[in-house]
């Protein structure tokens, strides 16, 4: 039995494997096909990889410019009259000249004795409102 497994037995050195019929011809054809496709890929490779990415980037750029253009066209410019009024009014608001909250109009002195002396004449009030209607409207928007 031991002799059977003598490593130096020439029988053991023989190739025990086989391959399917026509295998080596098949390998040559298959490799030839694969290297041809590798060639094609390397010739068109850079463009085929870059093309979809370039399309994507350029479409984003186009969309950006369209949106930017639309905003530029339809948004009011800085030196338009409406903005000037708003900014000047906001300055009044900031400085406390225009106070429009409920507390501002509440007469703290209503219960006092001297409050009667400070009563505003209704005609005077209507005149004031009609003259300053835009400021009051804007202040109410605050």
């Amino acid at each position: 039995m031991k002799k059977k497994f003598d490593i130096d037995n020439p029988k053991l050195r023989e190739n025990p494997f086989t391959v399917p019929d026509g295998y080596f011809l098949e390998v040559r054809n298959s490799v030839s096909e694969r290297i041809s496709s590798v060639n094609r890929e390397s010739h068109t490779g850079v463009w085929s990889i870059a093309k979809p990415q370039l399309i994507l980037v350029s479409s984003f750029v186009i969309i950006f410019f369209i949106v930017y253009g639309a905003f530029s066209l339809f948004s009011p410019s800085d030196n338009s009259p409406e903005v000037t009024i708003l900014s000047s009014n906001s300055q009044y608001l900031d400085e406390g000249f225009l106070r429009t909250s409920f507390v501002d109009f509440f007469d703290f002195e209503g219960d006092t004795v001297i409050s009667a002396e400070h009563k505003i004449d209704s005609v005077e009030l209507i005149t004031y409102i009609s003259e300053n209607i835009d400021i009051i409207t804007l202040a109410s928007l605050e």
Partner: peptide, 15 residues
């Protein structure tokens, strides 16, 4: 289970 092995038992054990 190799269908492309053509050796005898000694060669199989050796492999």
């Amino acid at each position: 289970a190799d269908p492309f092995f053509n050796g005898d038992e000694a060669q199989r054990i050796f492999r």
